[in-house]
């Protein structure tokens, strides 16, 4: 049973495509890892797997072990170099010098011979693959398993929830994180997803509003590219926790697309932290680990906050 050593399982869901499920999953995993947790990421978007691209491990292949598959390791766990400051409440001590937990991934992308190959599968085949991903991957001991999903409320989701309700204990299955963009178009699809969770009795851990505003790198004017406030209003309407808003950061996209460490112009302050100085202090170059480079991204403090809220909610649920 591959799920038995996992403490908490959280799904990342959204009725709408392209709102940043994979991006949010990636950043939740990195933020959890930076707070010292061991994290696994399972990508069950079978026809459009993005997780390998996000973690920059597209060429990796899954290895076979007796009775199952070994997930692809993104980075190993590392103890903090200076343990005395490891217990701050605000989590901002987690810069590139501090330790991080191990991070593993599993995706159908690792099983494809060619990255451009289409996976044309009907329902039963997808169901079988989802079940196999849940039963045959040797995750080892994990604090958190994040499951990235395709858009919609169909085969993959039904199979995923069915299998989890059967094979994971209620303490393990923490619940679902819902991702939306602020637009009404996205919110109206995502409401369907919350109703899906209610019908299948999956606990909603909270709503994350992604792509909330874009700060012009030239004049620092913040434009609400995809409207504003929709996520929070929806969370209030459905009485579920609102975990936070995430702006668009071109530096994060650059980090994922080109692997370049984020650099910010002078005077960029996020959460009281000067991102410009933060970048200059650190010695992490473009060759560093993704998690180290991410620690310099302006979204890192944002996600550190979201993850703290999420972990609290999970602990409350788990009793």
């Amino acid at each position: 049973m591959s799920l038995q050593d996992i403490k908490h399982i959280a799904l990342v869901l959204s009725g709408k495509g392209g709102v940043g499920k994979s991006s949010v999953t990636t950043q939740l995993a990195l933020a959890l890892s930076l707070q010292g947790h061991n994290v696994g990421v399972l990508d069950i978007d079978l026809t459009g797997p993005s997780i390998p691209r996000f973690f920059g491990i597209e060429s990796a292949k899954v290895r076979q072990a007796p009775g199952g598959w070994l997930p692809v390791q993104v980075h190993d766990g590392q103890e903090a170099s200076d343990k005395t400051n490891g217990h701050h409440e605000n989590g901002q001590e987690k810069n590139s010098q501090s330790g991080h937990g191990a991070l593993y991934c599993m995706s159908l992308g690792f099983l494809l011979a060619n990255r451009g190959d289409a996976v044309v599968w009907r329902g039963p085949k997808k169901t079988a693959m989802v079940r196999q991903f849940l039963s045959d991957v040797h995750w080892g001991p994990l604090d958190y398993l994040l499951i990235d999903t395709p858009p919609g409320t169909s085969d993959e989701h039904i199979s995923l929830v069915e299998t989890l309700l059967k094979s994971a204990t209620p303490e393990q299955l923490a619940g679902a994180v819902i991702v939306t963009t602020p637009q009404a178009i996205s919110v109206s699809d995502v409401k369907k997803e919350i109703n899906f969770c209610r019908k299948t009795s999956v606990h909603v851990l909270g709503v994350i509003e992604n792509m909330a505003g874009f700060v012009c790198p030239n004049c620092a004017e913040c434009t609400d590219v995809f409207s504003k406030g929709g996520g929070k209003a929806m969370a209030t309407e459905f009485e579920v926790p609102f975990l936070g808003s995430v702006p668009i950061d071109p530096m994060f996209i650059r980090l994922i697309e080109e692997g370049k460490a984020p650099v910010y112009p002078e005077g960029t302050v996020v959460d009281g932290q000067d991102m410009h100085q933060n970048g200059e202090k650190s010695e992490v170059g473009d060759e560093g680990l993704l998690v180290e480079k991410y620690a310099r991204c302006s979204l890192c403090p944002v996600f550190a906050g979201i993850v703290r809220g999420l972990v609290d909610n999970i602990n409350v649920t788990a009793g």
Partner: peptide
């Protein structure tokens, strides 16, 4: 491409790296 309504600076929010 996205044109900032304030300074009309064009930024590529979703960079075409490839």
């Amino acid at each position: 491409g996205f044109v900032c309504p304030k300074c009309t600076h064009q930024s590529e929010i979703f960079r075409p790296t490839t």
